[in-house]
Nucleic acid binder design. Structure first.
Lengths: 346, 346
DNA sequence: ATTAGCACTCTAACAGTTAGAGTGCTATTT
DNA sequence: AAATAGCACTCTAACTGTTAGAGTGCTAAT
C-alpha cells in the first residue's frame, strides 16, 4: 500500500476547506471536499482528517452535524503556508489604472480613487492613508505674513507634497526678517525629514549660544507649531456599501459593528502607521491582534512608496472570510500604481 | 353642541400620527392616538379622520388592518405646517461645542468633527461640505518656482482659507518675473471672488492689447490651470454605523441602498451645492426630488457662513422617519458654530 | 490505512393554529 | 349632525409540530 504523507494531506484538505468556505460562505462538509478532490479521497477519510484539523484548532463546527468552518488560526495557517498568489486579470488592472491614473487628477483624487479601486476590485472596503509628511524630506519652505500676528508657512517636500500651515506668532516679523529666516531654513534643512526638523533645530539651538541664538529661536518657533502635521492624519475610505453584500452581515448587528470599526479612524490610523514600517503585505485576521472589539473582521495592509521611500499605506477591510489571495495581489498592485501616480503628480 | 373645526383637528391628528410614528417606528393605530389625546377624542372618531387623511394622501396603511404610516406628502405637510422648533439641551450643545471648538484644531478637524457632531446628536449620518473656494474672496497670492517647469501658487482668501496648486508651465519664469506677476495679481485681484478670477483676467486681457499683453497673459495662464478648485469637492462624512440602529434597515438590502446613496459623492455634492444658494434649512423627503434611486431617505441641509458669507453647507441623511424638528435645530446650531470656528481659524 | 454503512443530531423549511391589533361599518347616543 | 360604542372581519407575528436533508462519529469490513 502506498504510503501517504498525512501532514501534506491535512494541508491540502485545509486548503480545500478554506477555499470552499471563502467561496460558498456555508460550512463545508466532507462530501463537498471529496468532490473537490474528484473523489480521489472518500468522505469518510476526509472526516477523519477533519477531526484532526479540528483538534489542531484550525477548523471548527458551528454546531454538531454542520460542516466545518476555518478558525482564525486556520486562516492564519492558510495565508502563511498554503496561499498561492493570484494574478489580476487585464480587466481588473485596467479598472484600477483608469481610476488611479485619471486625467487631470490631483493627490486628493488619486487617494480617493485608490480607496474606491480597492473596494471595487476586491469587494471589501478600501482604506488609503495620506502620505506621511513626517517621513517626507524637506525641500523648500516659504514664509509670509498673512497679517500682523500670523504667518503662513508653505513647505514643499522632495516627493512633491505641499503642506501649508497658518501659525499665530505673538511678535510681528518684518518682511526682511521673514526672508532671512526663509533663506536660512532653506539652506539649513535640505535633506532633513519633516519629522526630524524639530529635534534638528533644537540641537542647533543648543550648539549656537551666540548672537545667532535669537534668530534661530524664531525659526525653530515657527516650525514647532503643533498642527503642522495634523491634517495628514486623514484616511480615505470607500466601499461601506459593498461590504453589505457579504452574507455574514445578514445580521444587522454584525453589520453595525463592522461599520463602527470602519469609522474608528484612530484605531485604523494606528494600525496603518504601524504596519507602514514593514515592507509588503501584512494580514490581521479576526481577533488575532485587532485594535478593535472582538469580531469576524480581517484587515490586509500594504505600504506604498514614492521615489523608493515608504510614505503611506493602503488597506482592505472585510470579513475574515475573504479572498486573501486576490486581496493581497490587488493591494500590491494598487500600492505600486498609487506610488507611481504620486510620483508623476509630485 | 360645540362646533369642531375639522381642519384643525385633522392637522393635530396628523401631527400626532407623525410624531408617534417617528418615535415608535411602527404603524400607529387609532387607539394609540386617542391615548395621546388623553381620550378626549375616541378611537372611532380618529378612525374617521384617519380615513380622510388617507384620502388626502397624507397617510397610508402598509396593509389592511395595520396602523397608519405617514406618506412623503404627509411628512412634507408636517414639516411645512405643523413642525414646531425643538430646543437643544445644554448637554447636546456642549457635546457639539466640544467637538467643533476643539483645542489646537484646524480646518480638516473642524470639518470632520462637525460631521461627527451631526451624526452623534441626531443619530443619522452627517455630511459636511468643504468651504467653496469659488465663493471666497481673493486676498493674497504667492508664486514660486518649484523647479524648471513648475510653479507653486499659494492663494489666501479673506476668510483665511489657503489653497495651493502646482502647475506645469512650459516656459521658465525667472524669479523677477514671478515677483512682478505676484505683485500685479495681488494689486489687481483684491476683492475678486476666486470663481470670477478667470473671467476677470480674460476681460482685462481683451482691454489691454498693448505691450502689457504678454505679461497679463502669463498671469492669466497661471491662474486658469484646471484643478485649482478641484480638491475642494470634498465631503466629510460620519455616522454610517449609527444609521444601522434604525429599524427600517433591518432589511439588509435597504441598508445597502442607503449606504450606496451615502457614498454617491457626486449626487450629494450636487445637492449641497444647489441648496447652499438658499438661506437656512432645506428638506428633501423621500422620493420627492432626490437625486437618487427611489428609497425611503430624507436629506436635510443647511448652509454655513464665514464672515456673513455663505461658503458651504452641512447635511443630515437618514430614513424619512426622522426627527425633523431636532435635526433642523441641530443643523442650524452646528452650521452656526462651524462658521464661528472657521472664522477663528481663518 | 481506508472505506462503507448506519444511527444520530441539528437545521431550515413548511404548514397549521392562535392571539392580538387594527380596521370599517352600522346602530346608537348626544 | 357629529361623535361614539359595538361588532365582524382581516391581517400579522409568533408559536407549534413535522419533515427532509445534510453532516457527523463510530464501527465493522476491506
Amino acid at each position: 500500500m502506498k504510503k501517504v504523507d498525512t501532514e501534506s494531506r491535512q494541508k491540502s484538505i485545509l486548503n480545500a476547506i478554506v477555499e470552499s468556505y471563502v467561496d460558498s460562505a456555508t460550512p463545508v462538509g466532507s462530501r463537498a471536499i471529496a468532490q473537490r478532490f474528484r473523489n480521489a479521497i472518500s468522505p469518510a477519510t476526509i472526516r477523519n482528517v477533519m477531526a484532526d484539523l479540528e483538534e489542531l484548532g484550525l477548523i471548527m463546527q458551528p454546531h454538531t452535524s454542520a460542516g466545518r468552518v476555518p478558525t482564525d488560526r486556520g486562516y492564519r495557517f492558510y495565508v502563511d503556508s498554503l496561499l498561492e498568489p493570484k494574478h489580476l486579470t487585464k480587466e481588473e488592472e485596467s479598472v484600477i489604472n483608469k481610476l488611479i491614473h485619471a486625467l487631470g487628477s490631483d493627490i486628493e483624487y488619486a487617494m480617493q480613487n485608490a480607496s474606491k479601486a480597492i473596494s471595487i476590485v476586491t469587494n471589501v472596503a478600501g482604506v488609503v492613508l495620506m502620505p506621511r509628511l513626517k517621513r517626507s524630506i524637506f525641500k523648500h519652505i516659504e514664509l509670509f505674513n498673512m497679517d500682523d500676528s500670523r504667518i503662513l508657512a508653505v513647505i514643499v517636500t522632495t516627493s512633491g507634497f505641499v503642506k501649508n500651515s497658518i501659525m499665530d506668532f505673538e511678535e510681528h516679523l518684518t518682511r526682511q526678517e521673514l526672508t532671512r529666516i526663509t533663506e536660512f531654513l532653506n539652506s539649513e534643512l535640505e535633506g532633513v525629514s519633516l519629522g526630524d526638523i524639530k529635534s534638528y533645530l533644537t540641537r542647533k539651538l543648543l550648539e549656537e549660544r551666540d548672537s545667532f541664538y535669537t534668530f534661530l529661536k524664531r525659526a525653530a518657533d515657527i516650525l514647532s507649531v503643533p498642527g503642522l502635521f495634523k491634517a495628514d492624519d486623514h484616511l480615505y475610505f470607500d466601499g461601506a456599501a459593498c461590504i453589505m453584500s457579504h452574507p455574514e452581515f445578514m445580521d444587522i448587528k454584525k453589520a453595525r459593528l463592522f461599520l463602527r470599526a470602519c469609522e474608528d479612524k484612530k484605531g485604523l490610523l494606528n494600525l496603518l502607521n504601524q504596519d507602514m514600517e514593514l515592507e509588503g503585505v501584512k494580514i490581521h485576521i479576526g481577533k488575532e491582534n485587532l485594535y478593535n472589539e472582538i469580531q469576524e473582521l480581517s484587515i490586509v495592509t500594504c505600504n506604498y512608496k514614492v521615489n523608493d521611500m515608504t510614505v503611506g499605506a493602503i488597506a482592505a477591510i472585510g470579513p475574515t472570510r475573504m479572498e486573501y489571495g486576490r486581496v493581497i495581489s490587488v493591494l500590491k498592485y494598487i500600492s505600486n500604481e498609487l506610488g507611481k501616480e504620486l510620483e508623476s503628480l509630485g
